[in-house]
């Protein structure tokens, strides 16, 4: 996903958890924000929750300097309800990593 840097140094990694409206344009809005503002998006997992009106989304972001700006920009999107920063360590990405081992 738009990964400009691939040497994923664990210390620079941040997991953002988003609650977003679930409709066909939401992924475009979020991915478009990352690509047009040249932020690195390393991984993305998204699943509808409840009755499917909203989705939960996890973003693996490799940005140090721009992180605050990314969070503020995400919060501005009308389809994004909440953005929270996950504590480092275990994340959904480690749980699914066995699907992606080469």
């Amino acid at each position: 996903m738009n990964a400009l840097k691939t040497d994923s140094n664990i210390q620079h990694e941040t997991i953002l958890e988003l609650q977003v409206n679930n409709h066909p344009g939401v992924m475009s809005h979020i991915c478009g924000l990352f690509s047009r503002r040249a932020y690195n998006l390393e991984g993305i997992v998204v699943v509808p929750i409840g009755r499917g009106k909203i989705s939960r989304m996890w973003l693996k972001v490799i940005e140090e300097n721009n992180l605050e700006q990314i969070v503020k920009q995400l919060q501005k999107l009308p389809d994004v309800q909440t953005v929270t920063r996950q504590p480092p360590g275990d994340s959904i990405f480690s749980e699914i990593s066995h699907f992606f081992s080469s």
Partner: peptide, 8 residues
């Protein structure tokens, strides 16, 4: 008014 502009 736009928090993104502060310190951008």
């Amino acid at each position: 008014i736009d928090p993104c502009e502060i310190g951008k």
